[in-house]
Every structure is written in C-alpha cells, then in structure tokens.
Computed example of a mutant assay.
Amino acid sequence: MSSWSVLPMFSLLAVAAVCAVSGSMDLPGSLDPSLLENVDVDQLRSNYLPPGLQNTNLTVDDLQKLLQSKCQKANDHLPPGSVNATALSKTIEQSAIKLFECLSGLANVTEIQAEIAEATPKGDLDVVFEKYCLRMPQAKGCLKEFNDAILPCLTADEKRHNGVLQRIADKLLEFICYKNGDQIALFIAEKGPECLTDSRDGIANCLNASFAGYLPKEFSPEWNLPQLVLGPKQCVDLYEFETCTVNLLEKCEVITPSNIVESMFRYVRRESSCQPHIDRAKQQHRRAAPLSEADSRSA
C-alpha cells in the first residue's frame, strides 16, 4: 500500500527520500547530505507516490528543488536576501535523516518482528510493547526536533495549524501505547496485521479516493506543495478515508482490528476541530440523498 497520503506531503519530500536511500532503513551514524545522491528513485516512486505520479521522471534533484521552493515561497514576505532557502531545505534533509536515525535506534523493525514472533505463542505480547512504549517520550522528542526544522518553511496559515498536527501525532503515539501497548498487543493477537495485509489494495483505493485531489496528475517543477493545514475540507476528506477504511476492515475474519482502527481515528480526532465540519458534511449528505433517489426514480 502506498503511504504517500498518510504523511504530510511537505515532510514526505524529506522523509521519503531518506527512506529510499539504498533501498534500506539502515542509516549510518553521520548525517551526510550526500546520502540523498544515492536514493533509489524507482523505489521512492512506487512506495511514496500515488499511482498518477508513479510514472513520472521524478528525480532527487526535483525533490530538493521542491523543498527549496517551498522554503522560499513561505518567506517571500521577508526582505529579499534575508532568508537562505537552500540552507533551510538542507537543514530539513539532515533533520529527516536524524529523525529516522533516532527512531530506528528506539525501535528496530526487524527486532520487533522477531520479538513478537517469540512472544505470541507465550501470550507475552504486552511485555514486548511495554518495553518499547517506555521509549515514547524519546520518540516524541525526535518528532518535535524534526518539526522544529520544518517550521521556518511553513506559511503563516500552516504555522497556525502546526500545533494541532503535532498534538495529533502525540495522541497517535499515546493511543498505540495506551496501558503500555495493550491496544497494539490486542490488534496483533486478533489478526490485525493479517487483516491489513488482506485489505491493502482496498485501503490504497480509499487513500486515492480521499486524497488524490491534493496532487497534480503530472509532476512539474513549478508544482506547489499542498498546504499543511487541517481545515474543513481536509477534515471531511480524513473522515471519508476513515469511513472507507473501517468499512473495509469490517469484512475481515475478526472484527476487533476494525474496532481498534476506528477507535484510533476517533481518539486522535478529538485533538482537532474537525467534528463540526464532519457533522455539517454528514447533514448535507443526508439532505441530498432523498433528492438523488427521487432523481433516479424519475430518470
């Protein structure tokens, strides 16, 4: 499943490039910007871009130029020459490398999978996740440091929404580690990973149906990145993605994974001001539904 629309698009430009370095998540100790010269662009396209952009001639240089352009446009209101957009974009690239270095030091995916495999037959999943959830404060610190790096390249409107997005990220971590990981342990025990794997194509369709409109059909160096805001439209689109995904997961063999995913969406949504916009959209949909049915009968 493509993860392009799960991450904010601006952060994605820096983060996805680092993810694709040599096709590996194993990063060296030094923060060497030249790492980006070794990015596997084909892997980047297939894993981090929506279907409409997977056949473009996107290069690492294009990603760097988009970052630089974003930083420049966000500071156009300042006197000319007072901001070095190239330096700001390089700082974001290095911060992305440091973020993954930090997170991989806290939780190695391969090690976690091995520990889960060993603990599952014994019923000790809670022990595994308790160990990693104790590291949650460090994970929050890693994310905050990366967020601080991107702040100078955000518009005034994006900065106003940034606090909300940060709180949502923190709440997501807190949900995963609720009672030292009870939720994620239950998710795994109740065949949650299998449910997600079986539903991945459908979830990709949900992603594209909800968020494809934020990206152009074809890549261009003049393309402007979407705003990192959580306004009325974004709230409704997120809710549509939630509804689509939950309905899909309900078809799995066990209903528990669907219930946990739905609870997660609701938990993080409380940190936003989305609910009034969602309620309004649902009310408008209900009002329009009878008219649509009448129109279909008269057709």
Rank of each mutant, 00 (worst) to 15 (best):
A281P: 07
L125I: 01
Q72R: 13
I255N: 05
L225E: 08
A107S: 14
D201H: 04
V21P: 13
L238N: 10
I278D: 11
Y239F: 10
P221N: 01
S24I: 03
P232D: 06
V268R: 08
W223R: 02
L58M: 13
L7N: 10
S2D: 13
N180I: 01
G202E: 11
T91A: 12
A119C: 01
L154P: 00
Q234L: 10
F219S: 00
T256D: 06
P80Q: 11
V15Y: 12
A288P: 08
L67K: 03
V83D: 07
V15T: 11
Y267Q: 07
I92W: 02
S46Y: 07
C133W: 01
Q94K: 14
D76I: 07
A96Q: 02
A204D: 11
L31Y: 12
A16T: 03
V6F: 14
R135A: 12
L165F: 07
E130A: 12
D279R: 09
P216R: 03
L228G: 06
S199V: 01
F187H: 04
G123D: 01
T91Q: 09
F187V: 04
G163Y: 01
P193F: 00
P33C: 08
L12Q: 10
L44V: 11
Q113A: 15
L249V: 10
I184C: 00
R297F: 15
P8M: 08
I150L: 05
N75F: 02
W223N: 02
G123W: 04
Q166I: 04
K159E: 05
R287S: 13
D26H: 13
K171Q: 07
R297P: 01
Q72G: 09
I92C: 05
R297Y: 13
A149S: 12
I168D: 05
R167P: 07
L248T: 12
C133Y: 02
P221E: 01
L49H: 03
W223S: 02
S104K: 09
L63D: 03
L172T: 13
C206S: 00
N224I: 06
A185P: 13
L215P: 01
R135D: 08
K159D: 02
S89P: 10
V6P: 00
P51I: 08
C71F: 03
P8N: 11
S2V: 08
L143A: 11
P290V: 11
L58C: 10
E145Y: 06
G213V: 09
F211H: 00
T243C: 00
T59I: 05
L67T: 03
A204Y: 01
Q138A: 15
E242Q: 12
A107W: 04
L44I: 12
G141Q: 05
D201C: 03
P193M: 03
M1K: 13
S30P: 08
Q183Y: 10
K171C: 05
N38H: 15
F146Q: 06
V39F: 02
P257G: 02
D76W: 07
C19Y: 13
L99T: 10
V39M: 04
K65E: 15
